[in-house]
Amino acid sequence: MASDEITPPEPKGRVLSIAGSDPSGGAGIQADIKAVSAFGGYAATAITALTVQNTQGVTDVHHVPEAIIAAQIEAVLSDIGADAIKTGMLATKSVIDTVVDTLGDRLAEIPLIVDPVMVTTSGDTLMDDDAIDTVRERLVPLAYLLTPNAPEAAKLTGLEVEDVDGQRAAGEALLKEGARAVLVKGGHIEGSQIIDVLVTRNGVRLFTRPRLKSQNTHGTGCTLASAIAALMAQGLPVEQSVEQACDYLHEAIARAPGFGVGHGPVNHIWPLAEANLAKLSS
């Protein structure tokens, strides 16, 4: 079980993202790097899979050998280090086992943000069925923060997650499985508002925002988890990190560049662009 006493010493904003690569730049490792950078953090990566995808979907996946995944993690942590670790696409049981075994006792000191990526925005499956059980058994108990969307929370708990009550129940169930905090996202639940439910051992908090009418939602889960990781890596507590990251993502969707003909990417770097404009006009 994840310790209640994780307090990274002298946080510097270093985030290790362990996830798949998206050549179109909207999700996966590419989104993670941009989101972490947008908050002034330092992004390092361990790539678990090379996907062939764009805004219309995934057409192929090349899985990186487990030994190379482990070596990437070791190369980063033995040299640069990390103040937070974020996981994304871990497609198979063997990959999950490799990541957990390689991280080992480091998770007693470094918070782990787990985005249990199972299905893409376009509906493509990114995780084997047996890997879902492994997430529940091996990753959930180590998670400082778990960030499932409603369908992922339903798969992990076996509960119906169709409203706020379902989100809360799923979050509480995952706390019992060992996660320290769970953010059950509400983007897949119908309604004029999106309600994200944060369940911690101290209680429940709702984050409510108006739903934006936009197709530009490619990689939103990756982006949000990485933004949270970046803020936590700089010393912010979970609740404040979640609130700021949700605000950031809402604006990133609103300012999406409109690339692609399917589910387009968000504008990951809008805070940097805004800061640059402010400097130029001053």
Rank of each mutant, 00 (worst) to 15 (best):
L90E: 05
L126M: 06
I132R: 12
G123T: 08
I80W: 15
D97Y: 10
A70F: 13
V99I: 10
A71M: 10
D130S: 02
E66H: 11
A84D: 05
P65D: 10
A71W: 13
V100M: 03
M127R: 07
V76D: 06
L103E: 04
K93R: 12
V99H: 09
Q72N: 11
K86A: 02
S78C: 13
D97M: 09
T92A: 01
D101R: 14
S94Q: 15
I68W: 15
L107I: 09
E74Y: 12
S78Y: 14
E66W: 11
D97L: 09
K86P: 13
V76G: 05
D124W: 08
P116T: 00
I132N: 09
A84C: 05
S122Q: 09
D79G: 00
A131M: 06
A108F: 12
A84S: 06
L77M: 10
A75D: 11
A84K: 07
I110H: 11
I85Y: 09
G123C: 04
M89C: 05
E66G: 02
I110S: 05
V76F: 10
D115G: 00
P111R: 02
I113M: 09
I113D: 10
T87L: 02
A71S: 14
T121E: 07
L90C: 03
V117I: 14
I132V: 15
D124L: 00
D83Q: 02
M89P: 12
Q72I: 14
V119C: 05
A70W: 14
D130E: 13
L103Y: 12
T92P: 08
I113N: 07
L126N: 03
L126D: 08
L107F: 11
I69W: 13
M118S: 04
I80T: 07
D115N: 06
V76L: 03
A131D: 10
D128W: 14
V76Q: 06
L126K: 04
P65C: 08
D130V: 08
T125W: 09
I68E: 13
E109W: 06
I73N: 02
D83A: 00
I69C: 07
I113A: 01
V99R: 08
V114N: 10
L112G: 00
P65I: 08
R106N: 06
I73K: 01
D105Q: 01
S94G: 14
T92I: 02
S122L: 01
A84G: 01
T120H: 04
A108N: 13
A82C: 08
V117L: 04
